[in-house]
Each structure stands twice: as C-alpha cells, then as structure tokens.
Nucleic acid binder design. Structure first.
Lengths: 136, 136
DNA sequence: CTTTGTGCAAAGGCTTTGCATGCTT
DNA sequence: AAGCATGCAAAGCCTTTGCACAAAG
C-alpha cells in the first residue's frame, strides 16, 4: 500500500487535512471526493484531488467518516454522529436523515445467523423520495 | 440515448440476447457484466462486451433482472425469483442466500413515512461472511 | 533528520458511446 | 426494405498510484 495507510493511529496534522475535514463537515448530505474538492477550490484552497481522495479514504478507515456507495457507484463521505444508525436519503434533492432502527439490528442479526452468516455489513442506506420532492 | 433503449417494450430476439439471458441465469450469485462476458467467451460465444453491458442494462430496466452495486462499485445482475426479498451475500466466497424479512418491510415503511419519505428503494443487500469462510 | 503528506500527472478499471455493418421483423 | 442490435474501438469517469518535493514531528 502507499504511504497513506488507512486507519493509521496518529495521522500528521496538516493544513490540507484540516481543510478537508472542515469541508466535509460543512456539506449537508453525503459528499463525494470530487464535491469536496470542488468546494475547497471555490474557497480558494489549492488542495489536490488526489489528496482529497487519500485523506477521505484515510478518515473513513479510521472511523472518522462514514462512506457509502451512492446509486451512481461513486463513494460518498459524511461525518456521522456517534452511535450506530442508518441514513434515509432523498434520491432527488439529496436531503439526508439519520435514522436509528433498533429493531432492524436484531432482525438483521437474527436473519443472518439463521443462515449461518456473521459480521454483517451494516452500511445500509435507504434511498427514497422525500415529501417535498414527491409533491413537486 | 442510443439505439438500445432501456425498458423497450418488445426487444428483438437475437442470438446474443438469448445467450446472455442464459448465462445470467446460470450464474449462481450476482454476476457483473464482465463475468457474464467471460462465461460466454469460455462457452465459445463471440458476444461483445458492449453488447453484454447494453443488454444487461436493458433487461434490468425492463424488470427482467435485478441490479445492485457491489462493494467494489461494480454493477452486478441477477435473475430473481418472483416476490420481494433481499439477498445475503458472503463477502468472501460470493455465496448468496435469498431472504425474506416481512417485518423488515413494515419497519422500513414505517420509518420512512415517519420522516416523510416515500418510494423507498428496497434494493437492500446485506454483505457478510458465511460460516464456511469465517472458520477457514 | 526521518518519516509521512502532498501535487501532479499518468495509469487503471469499469462503463458508455459513435459509427458502420448485420440481422430481425 | 426499414430499423434496431451488434462489434469494435475510442472516449469518459472516478479512483488509485508513482515519484519527487515539501512539511511535520
């Protein structure tokens, strides 16, 4: 693997890393590396695209960010509140709601063990259409 | 859009389309376009990769196939048994189990409407590790 | 001073598309 | 005969990677 190891215990504190973290936190819903990069560029930052990719990947590996695949296959990142939860994402406007569905966890665990599966990936995201967009 | 319109009502019946359908049905778990293409090649078929992509896309658009994004971001297709269900996929060996979780449907629907969301995308797939692979 | 992070550009991998030809209908 | 489907190759996109230089500890 390259120099930027995912999940490294103590990453160095750089201007770029700070800017990237700041940008991701500022973005409301999930943002792709390119979106983060665009935002930084518009803010006058000269951070390179590769650095954004590497940093987001590292932060996700370290648990600092959540990452999902959006329907287009791109990787989207987002700062998450602590604790386990899922996201309900509007397919049209991108509005995101964090939802906790305690019963879902049990259900999934139960269903999985019934079939002899373990370590289920819980990165489950739901894409739908919010009322605002549905009526528009 | 190109000639191959997705979800066209009555697609033409061609040798390629038949071979592709056959190949997808033969593949146990979800298969990517490239995997389908590989299989066809090994069977001696000269179907082009682009045709496989176009055809799978068309069949998925027509509801004939299910398509999901695997963790690597690739599009995987699979023939589905009728009725609503989800898939439990082993991240290691690819073994797939179709599961129906009736309670999940209610849960999701309820949660969604609580937040004013509709038309929830139910293409939920669970990736985990099956016992065979976990003990290996 | 040593090691990690950054930039740039090139390479990679998957998917889509343009265009001429062949096959269905 | 008319029009969609196919093949091939080229183009597109997103993401990763190699390498030299800059910065952090």
């Amino acid at each position: 693997m390259t120099s930027t190891d995912l999940g490294r215990p103590n990453p160095r504190q750089t201007r770029q890393r700070a800017e990237i973290r700041h940008a991701v936190e500022a973005l409301a819903s999930f943002a792709t590396a390119q979106e983060v990069h665009d935002r930084l560029r518009h803010e006058g930052s000269g951070v390179g695209l590769a650095t954004v990719y590497r940093t987001l990947q590292a932060m996700a590996g370290g648990g600092e960010l959540d990452s999902i695949r959006n329907p287009d296959g791109q990787i989207a990142y987002r700062t998450c509140s602590p604790g386990h939860h899922h996201h309900l994402i509007c397919r049209t406007c991108g509005r995101t709601v964090e939802v906790t569905v305690p019963q879902l966890e049990q259900l999934v665990r139960g269903m999985a063990s019934d079939h002899g599966f373990a370590r289920i990936d819980h990165e489950v995201e739901f894409f739908g259409v919010c009322t605002t967009c549905a009526t528009a």
